[in-house]
Every structure is written in structure tokens, then in C-alpha cells.
Amino acid sequence: MHLRPEELAEWYLKLQETGRVHNIDLVTPEHVVPQVVLSILHAKTLGLTLPIVYNTSSFDSLASIELLDGLVDIYLPDFKVWNAATSKRLLKADDYAEVAKESIKAMYKQVGDLCFTTDGLAKKGVLLRHLVMPGFEDEGKHIMQWLAENVSTDLYVHVMEQYHPRAHVGKQRRGPLGQSVSSPKPSKQLRYVDINRAVRLEEVHSVSQAAREAGLWRFAEAAEHGGHNI
């Protein structure tokens, strides 16, 4: 379904008037930021007052973040992995961390630390998410240290434990003609054998502890419905 920016703006208003929602949550819209900007501007002329949430992997261009300045109330960025080799293999982007660093700093410069309404709903700021991956807790620790030193020790952080292998993680690698790769050790021929398990609580706790030791102290807890209280 394709919508013009004006039509998307009207949907924002419908959600505000009849949906009883707390915000407008835009999920990974980096590829359509100019259109999103137009939709927000138009919606505000129609009477939109709900906070705008920008929900992103952080693989955003600084030009996009600049376009959103003054229009986004809450940035909800991920910081996924730290090492270039890891991001190249798992995310197919060897410069992910460097891009994420600059994007997150730009987001924080715009809206600052997360603040709340009197009834506990987030109204403005950054809520940073890190999904702890099995066997990659050291990368999470590096991320927490960097956030404390380069963004703010008052940054609101959600250290997440929800990782579970899905999609192609546990599937066999394919040969050049599409056939399954045979091996005396079949488990070694899985696409991503190292992350083909759920994350352990001790791995999550080690990243959380590293965050505290780095000086971070504002941590989000998942809401009962599985999302965030925003």
C-alpha cells in the first residue's frame, strides 16, 4: 500500500482521534525520510499533538537525522554490534558501528535525555536499545562504555534479553548450485552456528553490569505487552 505524505498525515490524525494511542511510532523509515518529514509537517497543520517516535537500527545518514530535527520527539535507536567483522557477517554492513555512533550522537544532540509526563509516559528524548547476542557480550560491554563516555551517563538504556534464533540462523548453508553442504559435522554447516541458541541470562547480566560500571544508571524495563512504556 502506497500513501502520499498527505494521506499518511491523515492516518496520524485518525490514530490520534480514534485509536487512543500515546504516540506515532515510525519503524525503520530511513529509506523514506523526506516523505516522512512532509507527512509530519502536514499532520501538525491538521492538529497533530502526539509525540513522534523514530524507531531505528541506527544505520541512518546524518542528512536524514538533520531533516528530522524539530519533528521527532523520541528517538528509539538500536546499537546492535561493535566490531566491524561482526557487523559485516551478521548485518552485511562492515561500517555499521561507525554509522551508528554518529547517528546516535546526532539524535541525542536534538532531543537529549528521555523525560516523561506526570503519568509515566515518555514524551521526549532518546531510549537506546541493545539486544545481547549469544557469545557477543563483550561487544555489548564496549557499546555500554562508549555510550557512557560519548553520549551521556544519563542516557536511558534497555539491555534486552529477547534474542532467540529465527529465520535463516539455524538453516544449513547452501552450495554454489543451491544444494545443501554435506559435512561430517553438520552443525558446523549451519548458516550462523555461533548464534543458533538463545542468549543466556548470565550474558545479559554481564552487559548490564558493565553498563553500571561505566556509569549508566537509567535502565528500561519491558512492559507487560512486550514493548516499551512509551
Results as ranks from 00 to 15, higher is better:
residue 4 R to N: 15
residue 115 C to A: 12
residue 54 Y to A: 11
residue 67 L to K: 11
residue 55 N to V: 15
residue 57 S to G: 14
residue 80 K to G: 02
residue 42 H to P: 12
residue 200 R to V: 09
residue 35 Q to G: 06
residue 182 S to F: 11
residue 163 Y to R: 06
residue 184 P to R: 05
residue 170 G to S: 11
residue 224 E to I: 13
residue 63 A to E: 14
residue 95 D to H: 15
residue 199 V to E: 02
residue 142 H to S: 10
residue 192 Y to C: 00
residue 229 N to P: 11
residue 36 V to F: 05
residue 58 S to V: 09
residue 5 P to D: 00
residue 152 S to V: 05
residue 188 K to L: 10
residue 230 I to K: 13
residue 139 E to D: 01
residue 220 A to E: 15
residue 13 L to Y: 05
residue 96 Y to I: 03
residue 98 E to F: 04
residue 69 D to F: 14
residue 54 Y to L: 12
residue 115 C to R: 15
residue 110 Q to C: 11
residue 176 P to E: 01
residue 38 L to E: 14
residue 165 P to W: 04
residue 153 T to P: 03
residue 79 F to M: 10
residue 99 V to T: 14
residue 114 L to V: 07
residue 120 G to C: 14
residue 20 R to M: 00
residue 158 H to P: 10
residue 54 Y to W: 15
residue 185 K to I: 08
residue 31 H to C: 05
residue 71 L to R: 11
residue 178 G to C: 02
residue 217 W to L: 00
residue 134 P to A: 02
residue 107 M to K: 10
residue 19 G to Y: 00
residue 47 G to C: 02
residue 24 I to H: 03
residue 39 S to N: 07
residue 203 E to F: 13
residue 74 I to K: 07
residue 19 G to E: 01
residue 104 I to M: 04
residue 149 E to S: 14
residue 177 L to M: 05
residue 71 L to I: 07
residue 77 P to C: 10
residue 69 D to L: 06
residue 66 E to Y: 09
residue 33 V to D: 02
residue 135 G to E: 02
residue 63 A to M: 08
residue 87 S to V: 10
residue 107 M to D: 02
residue 203 E to R: 07
residue 41 L to I: 13
residue 193 V to S: 06
residue 115 C to E: 14
residue 80 K to T: 02
residue 183 S to D: 12
residue 223 A to R: 15
residue 114 L to K: 09
residue 167 A to N: 07
residue 84 A to M: 08
residue 39 S to T: 05
residue 80 K to C: 03
residue 210 A to Y: 01
residue 72 V to L: 12
residue 111 V to W: 07
residue 195 I to D: 00
residue 189 Q to W: 06
residue 86 T to S: 14
residue 79 F to H: 06
residue 226 G to S: 12
residue 148 A to S: 09
residue 3 L to V: 08
residue 140 G to H: 03
residue 79 F to K: 11
residue 220 A to D: 15
residue 148 A to F: 04
residue 55 N to I: 15
residue 61 S to K: 10
residue 26 L to S: 04
residue 45 T to M: 11
residue 13 L to G: 13
residue 189 Q to D: 08
residue 227 G to P: 04
residue 91 L to P: 00
residue 226 G to I: 12
residue 20 R to H: 03
residue 5 P to W: 00
residue 110 Q to I: 11
residue 3 L to P: 00
residue 143 I to K: 06
residue 74 I to W: 03
residue 164 H to M: 10
residue 183 S to G: 04
residue 122 A to V: 13
residue 56 T to P: 07
residue 104 I to F: 09
residue 147 L to D: 03
residue 191 R to L: 00
residue 184 P to E: 05
residue 97 A to C: 14
residue 151 V to W: 06
residue 38 L to V: 04
residue 51 P to R: 15
residue 37 V to P: 02
residue 190 L to I: 10
residue 13 L to R: 10
residue 109 K to F: 09
residue 146 W to A: 01
residue 52 I to R: 14
residue 164 H to F: 07
residue 190 L to P: 01
residue 67 L to E: 10
residue 74 I to N: 03
residue 32 V to I: 05
